[in-house]
Design a protein around this nucleic acid. Structure first.
Lengths: 188, 188
DNA sequence: GTCATTCTTGACTGATCGTTCCAAATCCGC
DNA sequence: GCGGATTTGGAACGATCAGTCAAGAATGAC
């Protein structure tokens, strides 16, 4: 062993998430990263490779965190439809900060397979969980039986994106809350 | 008078819309613009000022076109709810190409007053029209009476953003169509 | 304490960024 | 055809970009 790092990679990654979610990939310069992460240029490149790899790592970490938050909200209530509602409300409450997922989709679309892979693998577990919860809610009579659980899940996903874009465009909490309620209403 | 321009500003602007909607502002270089618009560097700067002003002009033109398309879809059917449905279907059908509005919101958020001004002034007329059509649909019994027309309008707006983000993320037509149907379902 | 190893710092690289300058080309009114 | 006006294309600008290099600072193993 030799001299240890003076920073923690995970914390630096969190800081990187903060920059990228606000300014996007192209809008973020190496200078900004160095300043915000609080580490030296060379440390940054030694630890994360290059800007693109750092971006991928940030998106990955963000996706994992976001997925976990969704799952925990989903499972927080006994009644399935309440879990769905809590999940939506969390999205509304956290919408003030830009979503790195939506941001990366808008910026790169389907053009970057590595990004798509991250989103897919993160989304798979979440999708399964939401589909399951919707089926439960249908069995409990809280979600209309004629709705395809898969479509409903994608609809919730899309609604999250819509809510986050609205927030990014300046919509306040009250309006976002109404959006969440209407999204849930589509399932009844 | 003297030598006339060899290009039409509006056509160049349309080409600029095509580049910006795909690559965003930061992701678009002057080089790309010159190549895609098919005009010289100097002509570009003489005609549009600088990159930022060109971007604003492109967003403005795009917003006007999009607003008009929405309005015409809205008014295309006698029954209000059918107009709403046609509007949603058009969004779905055109979602393959990235939306410059969503893109600019995601890239800049509320940070650029000039952008917000463009979106506001373009959105105002559209919002009014949608609210009116929703009220009609409520009177005709096609939209639930307990829904606030303003909230419903914002919900449709957000759903459009959601559909477009989904499309940008690679969702196919069939899935997008399901998203549109569920969005309309929220209003019933 | 010494050595080998690793991390940090700041100057530096070539490339590309948005933008401007300038000379040549092109047109209209006369 | 001529002169004034304007567009055009290409070279060039300083600034900034992402990324690298080299030298010094700090550590653990012995």
């Amino acid at each position: 062993m030799a001299r240890p790092k003076e920073f923690i990679a995970e914390e630096a990654l969190d800081a990187a998430i903060g920059v990228f979610r606000e300014h996007g990939y192209e809008g973020t310069s190496a200078e900004m990263l160095v300043r915000t992460l609080g580490i030296g240029r060379q440390s940054l490149y030694d630890t994360f490779g290059d800007k693109w790899q750092l971006y991928l790592a940030a998106v990955q970490r963000y996706a994992a965190r976001e997925t976990e938050a969704h799952l925990s909200a989903l499972a927080s209530e006994r009644r399935a439809v309440d879990g769905l509602r809590v999940m939506v409300e969390r999205v509304v409450d956290d919408a003030a900060e830009a979503c790195l997922g939506v941001n990366s989709i808008c910026e790169f679309g389907t053009g970057k397979p590595e990004l798509a892979a991250i989103r897919d693998s993160a989304g798979r577990a979440l999708t399964r969980a939401i589909v399951g919860r919707i089926r439960e809610a249908q069995a409990e009579g809280d979600v209309a039986a004629d709705i395809d659980p898969s479509s409903a899940t994608e609809f919730l996903h899309a609604s999250f994106a819509g809510i986050r874009v609205a927030a990014r465009g300046g919509a306040g909490q009250r309006r976002l809350r109404a959006l969440g309620q209407l999204a849930l209403r589509a399932l009844t």
